[in-house]
Amino acid sequence: MTSYDSRPSGDSGYTPLEEELVRAMHGFAGAADVPRFDTDRVVRRSRRKRATAMAGGAAAVLLAIGGGTALATSVTRGPEPLNATSAATTGDRNHTTVLLGLPGGHSAPIRLAGNDETLAKAALAKGGLKIGFVKAACDGKPGSVIAVSPHAPTVVHKGDTVTVTLCAG
């Protein structure tokens, strides 16, 4: 497949399309509001995953070490995307996913699992949805979305009201 001349080798050799593409990508990326990545959360989650991969006995050790909260969350927040690795498609996470109906009979999922109130509000507002928040007791991370109603597979439309249940802690 080398019949196409692959590409110019230096920046100077870019075609206008390529130059435009580079600018477009950088513009697009630069416009994004970068979230903060919480190292502790990363560390906690990767330990949790490692723990789930280990045998039960190892889990007990982890508990003793003080990963108690992490383990507890992994149990109560089962449907979270990162835990549901391979089986992770719609099924598990339906109750935290809003299915937004779009013109032309399409629909797009808005996944809220693991989001907090601000993120959920922003995501739903973007889809033109009205939002009501309620809180419910849970053992997960306080303030995180634990359920939404109506949720997938029910399709909602612009202007509809969606009720989001947040973890009260």
Partner: peptide, 9 residues
Amino acid sequence: QETLERAYR
């Protein structure tokens, strides 16, 4: 997030 988790592991 997932990339960082893998990197950490």
